[in-house]
Amino acid sequence: MIHLQNVRFSYPRDSFALAVDDLKIPEGQHTAVIGPSGCGKTTLLRLVAGILPIEQGSINVQTLSVHEMSQNELQQFRIKNIGLVFQEFELLDYLTARENILLPYRVSSALLLDEAAQGRCETLAATAGIDHLLDRHPAEMSQGERQRVSICRALVTNPKIILADEPTGNLDPENQQKAVDLLKSEANRCEATLLMVTHEHDLLLNFERVINMGEAI
């Protein structure tokens, strides 16, 4: 369960302010977040991931109080629980698809890059249909392939929460559906909660719940 209560956040020197009175997302639920640009969809995801600190209120993920964690604790929390997917994919151009997928294991000492992790990378790539591209660099792939690599990277650590920030924003309709299918099937397999920001109203039917950030939450 992700529970946000009386959360207030604003950026310094910016008139934008986010207010969430009470938002509960049950464990394993697939939720879409919609709303006009600048309404705070990405900010919501960043608050849940502990990337941005809230000004007041509380954010609890299962039994953990995200708002009370130190930087180190937040780091460990993200490594163990969160899988992040970005609209711009954010792949490192100097790494191959395989190395990008396994990147969390390279940057964190909390994760061990063992045979099991390598095997998960292979399985995920096969599921995503990019197993033949594992030794290629991002520059040698299409947009859809890159996004699938990015999704595999978010899922390789078996996260409990998958936060996807407009992962279909740069994809054609066919690839949009493929990306959502991949996210949903892997979220089901890991019994993970999926929280996805999107502008594509055609995709909303894929989700059990839709949160409109344009309205008061």
Binding site: A49, L84, E90, A110
Partner: peptide
């Protein structure tokens, strides 16, 4: 900077 920020988000201290 953006690359480093993403590495931080992926778990790098």
């Amino acid at each position: 900077i953006r690359e480093f920020s993403n590495l931080r988000n992926l778990g790098a201290d």
